[in-house]
Design a protein around this nucleic acid. Structure first.
Lengths: 353, 353
DNA sequence: ACCCGTGCGTGAATCGTCTCAAACCAGGCG
DNA sequence: CGCCTGGTTTGAGACGATTCACGCACGGGT
């Protein structure tokens, strides 16, 4: 069941079989069909292990994400897989679950696999994992993070924060809540910076942005943040949330308290995950081009690995976010909910589970 | 940078280095530390390709799912990854996107990789892909599907349908809608069968279940189904939906039409994805033990691959679903929404995206 | 007749690890 | 002194595909 069996069966040498598979133009047509027939007959499948061993590297790209269950990363992964396939490579997707130890374990797995390169969103802030990659000379591209020592693809969070806040100010809001995740995350800081810039650009004072910090960026923390929001002495007329899960939580709290959305409180989320558009009050959200991020990251990585003659220069790609306006900030509430408009996310097909 | 360099540096033979790595107990302590020092110094990483070539198989399990973006499959994958790691294996997760061609491509990738085995939820109904796996003698376990020719892990959909309908009947509903996906799917047929059985068991006639078939099982189709539901001459007082995405869509339509949920229309979904509990009217849903399915499937597969002495017998594991009751079927609406109760799904941490 | 180029096929070397039979060594015992 | 034993190390394949320097044959040009 090896290449030798095929060769013997077709009456040729192993080299010729290899040529039929990899460089068919070097083989006489007659021989080619004979060999191909033997391959089909025997059900021969070449061994990727042997190929990789010989080549000194595998045809796999490793990808490490923070949470596979987060639709954002699922989208990033699908973009990366698409780009990889276009280059004849495959992606091995692993989930660090935000745990630096898991992350380190997966990186050494990747090293053993001799992967072409790694796409990662590090859970480890110390940079120790990047040092490991550099030590083994494994090319990498950061996704949704930035580093000075390699390529990265991220989204302009300052711009995203600015457009969210500008949208709210444009709708007449003059006191706005910012429901943030931990300020240790660059994302949360940048989005706040952008929002603040938008307010001051429109002549509002700095304290027009009321800061509420959630411990984690999930739905439960969002519900808590919503309750805190309602207890404020100066209640904002709008909230900007650092991600959609927080926004969904806030929405739930408001609903429970009987506060109409967007009538008494408008909401803007971030990420535009599928369920933002599918909420009962569809959420206005800042869309990140997640699949595109994955695709560009993979393309950068592939370019780096193929840079034999051309010298590869590390690049920092920053993509622009996009505001998707839906019911949760609609000022004219006479219109029916427009679930169908604004984004294709709501219509994406999810097969049964 | 190979095992030879380590051997030379430590002044031993390659066999000894191999032993230090794989069977340290065979090596004298003094030698062991000397070799280990050389390994650390040189940053040696063994080549998985060479290992696999030698062993004739890799340490990877291939997993093929219908949609990575569906939280259900994300959960299945995480369960499988856990079990695999416990056995010293890794999972290579691939997304067929419900496309039989993609599926076939990934299966031949797995064959080239000489994976230990494959976990799959086939998109291809013809069984041609299973024939390929059998031809190459690659062990496989079906997930959420059943076959007579191998192991499988699935959930009792008849029981799920029955408990959903029984819950509604128990709440006094006597006319119930069933929003189904395509009846070509065994899932949809079985859930209907179960619902019907529950109705008749409670003395209701067969036509107490009103069938509405959606083209696809996504939110948009659910919205459409909701609109059709409201146009019926005999309007049900409850709906059972074949998955949560359909249920979310139905919920949206009802909300848009001003129909109170659960006041005038109760809703039960299926799968209990995270966003079912996070909807503004949290959905009652039939929970599938998704992570457990993945874990059991992987364990079955591992058992099959390790069955050298013991003869492996294919098994069909059928798990029991569980009804998670939330607001959307609560008969006492005086209570505040209970987002925090009923399931841990609503509190799962999703890091920022 | 000779040479050369071209088209096609060959076969051996190579990649890095594991495994196993054999070698080696030190010490104890007859 | 020779033999045996048990702990330790060695070194030679073997795994399967790729690649490349050659060899062979044929036909055209000189």
């Amino acid at each position: 069941m090896g290449i030798k069996d095929v060769a013997q069966h077709a009456g040729v040498s192993v080299g010729t079989v290899s040529n039929v598979i990899n460089r068919p133009d070097l083989v006489a047509p007659e021989t080619r069909v004979r060999v191909q027939a033997a391959i089909d007959l025997l059900g021969y499948v070449r061994s990727e292990a042997a190929r990789s061993l010989r080549a000194g590297q595998s045809r796999i790209i490793g990808q490490l994400v923070l949470d596979m269950a987060n639709p954002f990363f699922a989208d990033v992964a699908s973009g990366a897989a698409r780009a990889a396939r276009a280059a004849g490579l495959r992606v091995m997707l692993c989930n660090s679950a935000n745990d630096p130890e898991e992350e380190a374990a997966y990186l050494s797995l990747f090293a053993e696999q001799r992967v072409r390169g790694v796409l990662l969103t590090p859970a480890d802030a110390t940079g120790a994992d990047l040092a490991v990659l550099r030590r083994h000379e494994i090319p990498f591209v950061l996704v949704d993070r930035v580093t000075s020592e390699g390529c990265s693809v991220s989204v302009d969070d300052v711009a995203g924060g600015r457009m969210a806040a500008a949208h709210l100010v444009g709708n007449g809001h003059e006191l706005i809540g910012y429901v943030s995740g931990p300020m240790s995350l660059a994302q949360c800081r940048d989005r706040r910076t952008g929002a603040l810039a938008a307010l001051t650009a429109h002549g509002l004072p700095e304290d027009a942005l009321i800061h509420i910090e959630a411990e984690r960026m999930d739905v439960a923390s969002g519900r808590d943040a919503g309750r805190r929001l309602l207890r404020l002495s100066r209640r904002p007329t709008a909230v900007f949330c650092a991600n959609d899960l927080l926004a969904l939580g806030v929405l739930q709290s408001l609903y429970a308290a009987g506060v109409p959305v967007p009538g008494e409180m408008a909401i803007v989320g971030y990420d535009d995950i599928e369920f933002a558009g599918a909420a009962v009050v569809p959420l206005t959200s800042v869309r990140q081009p997640s699949a595109e991020m994955g695709q560009i990251a993979a393309e950068l990585l592939i370019e780096e690995t193929e840079a034999e003659t051309v010298r590869h220069r590390h690049r920092r790609v920053v993509l622009e976010p996009e505001l998707v306006v839906r019911e949760s900030t609609r000022s004219d509430r006479a219109l029916p909910p427009s679930w169908e408009r604004g984004s294709a996310a709501g219509t994406r097909a999810l097969p049964c589970g």
